[in-house]
Amino acid sequence: MALGDKISNAAEGLAGKAEEAAGKAKGDEGLEAEGRGDQTSAQAKKVGEDVKDVFR
């Protein structure tokens, strides 16, 4: 996995956590769900890149 991809995925995960926390604080379930979705997306990308690394 390229370093840029790792940084990008980590940033997306952190942004998702912040978005989820903001949604909880505001009582905005949509924002909270969007944050959880961003975190899940970042984790899925990380897993995909890890699988690629195994076969390199």
Rank of each mutant, 00 (worst) to 15 (best):
G16T: 00
V51C: 03
K52C: 03
G30T: 13
E34A: 13
A10V: 11
I7V: 11
E20S: 15
L3K: 15
E29Y: 10
A10R: 12
K52A: 08
K52P: 04
K52N: 08
E19C: 08
A33I: 06
M1K: 06
E12W: 09
E32N: 11
G48C: 02
K46G: 06
E19G: 02
G37H: 10
S41F: 10
D5G: 04
E19Q: 12
G13D: 06
K6Y: 07
A18M: 15
V47Q: 02
E32V: 05
E34Y: 05
A21K: 09
D38S: 11
G35E: 00
T40E: 12
K24C: 05
A25K: 07
E29V: 14
A42I: 01
A44K: 01
A2F: 01
G35V: 02
E34S: 10
G27L: 01
K17W: 13
S41W: 06
A15C: 08
G30E: 14
V51E: 02
D53Q: 12
K6I: 11
V47D: 06
D53W: 06
I7A: 04
E12V: 12
L14A: 11
V51L: 09
R56H: 12
A44I: 01
D53M: 12
G13Y: 08
A44T: 03
A21C: 04
V54W: 00
V51S: 04
L3D: 14
K45H: 07
L14V: 08
K26V: 05
D50M: 10
D50R: 07
S41A: 14
G23K: 07
L14W: 04
Q39N: 06
L31W: 03
G4D: 14
G30A: 15
K6R: 13
E19T: 12
R36W: 05
A33E: 08
E49F: 01
G37I: 06
D28V: 03
A18D: 10
A18V: 15
E19I: 08
V54N: 01
V54C: 03
E32R: 14
G27Y: 01
E34L: 10
A18H: 12
I7K: 02
V47Y: 02
E20W: 10
G16Q: 00
A33Y: 05
A22S: 08
